[in-house]
Design a protein around this nucleic acid. Structure first.
Lengths: 239, 239
DNA sequence: CGTACTGTTGATCAAAGTCAATTGAGGTGG
DNA sequence: CCACCTCAATTGACTTTGATCAACAGTACG
């Protein structure tokens, strides 16, 4: 289900109406708030995290260029997590009214949004597997594989290298490990000639080796086209 | 957004058309398959899990009576995980054609399905926090709180007690711990007078104590009604 | 009865957390 | 230009948690 040229035009129009460039480390959506707009990443990175009362933090998602920051945002009574922009973020906002118009006039665009949100759910499940079953080395390797693969899909990998403007502490909080252990684990990967991450630049030195180490299989990222039949269902998107 | 009596009638009609009672420990949806039907739990328990090549298993969801087993099922190219019925399962199947009809004639029912799927996503995020940030004792306490709370919401808690027909190994695989350590942790909770789980019967002896131990806050289960405005958006459910 | 699961307990070990100190880079003001 | 400050990254020493390996008990069922 790829969009027609006309639909793409409508979509980029909508995404161009309300664009903000945001300072690094700015909170976009506070936990507990009710969102006023749906946010779409045009450039830069964001992360979504939950905090425990004692301060422990878990990053539950990274949002890369092209990603929708939680499409369910208008459905939930209030946000269960905080969305923070990390670096170089340009964000398009879509209002409730615009979504309503889209849903009436361009159901296939809406359907694409839903598919995106289901892919996000699939990634979420894989993160649960990652943090629950894999060792520290496997975890870090796996998430680096995911990041590189997702960035490659949107054309942001140059050869073996891509921007990765987060901190080690962010990666640690995503993998459920301390910053110190994340550091040591990254060093092991570096010393093993698998991946080097320095000064915000990630280089995958040995892609096969890294993928073998953690058993990375990109199927869960659902890059393939949707099944043909889906058009028949309308998924509530329909007419 | 609660359904009207008429809508409830339509829904229970749809759910009554194709009901199966299934043997314990039967696989409902195999990983890699493409689903033919959308499954809704009418009674009993199911679990959804992913496996790593070396056999490690992560339970990513428990499905209790009333739950939808992955509404996204027709959207994804193929299932990323296995859905297995655990005990006493009666399952309603909804075909693609029925979903299509529903989406045209009863958008609000479809909308309810979407809300359900977003609640499932919220639970998924909390599980990630649980397994990534909390200690073994906290993890087990938290998941017991969740189970009891969800069962209470559908009227399946009698006083302090509810059926919990899974095995300790299932709970362990959900919490990302070995069966042995799960056993020891349950013993600690039992000895601490917090919760007793024996012979498939879970008793919450000290609800406050258990919730305090793990910082359980049921907000992520999203039991509250949806915000009023949601009707205006149609979420692609429209017309 | 024997067989096969589950659940239970113990002893040992390795992985990751904690605490503490140091290095290094970038920014700022004098 | 340099002294200073801050924050992130890095490394080391030690501790704790939970995994691993192993044995055994309780129960259900053919």
């Amino acid at each position: 289900m790829s969009l027609s040229p006309a639909e793409r035009g409508v979509l980029s129009k909508v995404l161009s109406l309300d664009v903000r460039s945001v300072q690094r480390r700015t909170v976009l959506q506070e936990v507990g708030s009710t969102a006023a707009k749906q946010a779409v990443m045009l450039a830069g990175w964001a992360c979504r995290f939950k905090r425990l009362p004692d301060g422990r933090r878990q990053v539950v998602a990274f949002y890369l260029p092209g990603d929708i920051c939680d499409f369910s945002i208008f459905m939930a009574p209030e946000l269960d997590s905080t969305i923070e922009l990390i670096e170089g973020a340009r964000v398009a906002g879509i209002s409730q009214a615009q979504l309503a118009t889209l849903s009436r006039g361009h159901p296939r665009i809406m359907q694409g949004f839903w598919r995106e949100s289901q892919t996000a759910a699939s990634i979420q499940r894989e993160w649960l597997v990652n943090n629950s079953q894999r060792s520290a080395r496997e975890r870090v390797a796996h998430i680096l594989c995911e990041i590189a693969t997702r960035l490659r899909a949107v054309g942001l990998v140059d050869g073996q290298e891509c921007d990765c403007p987060i901190m080690q502490a962010d990666l640690g909080d995503a993998c459920g490990m301390t910053a110190e252990h994340t550091n040591r684990t990254l060093r092991q990967l570096r010393d093993g000639g698998l991946a080097t991450w320095r000064n915000g630049l990630l280089r995958i030195d040995d892609s096969d080796g890294l993928q073998n180490l953690c058993g990375f299989d990109p199927a869960y990222l659902q890059f393939r086209p949707a099944p043909q039949q889906s058009g028949d269902i309308f998924f509530g998107v329909g007419r």
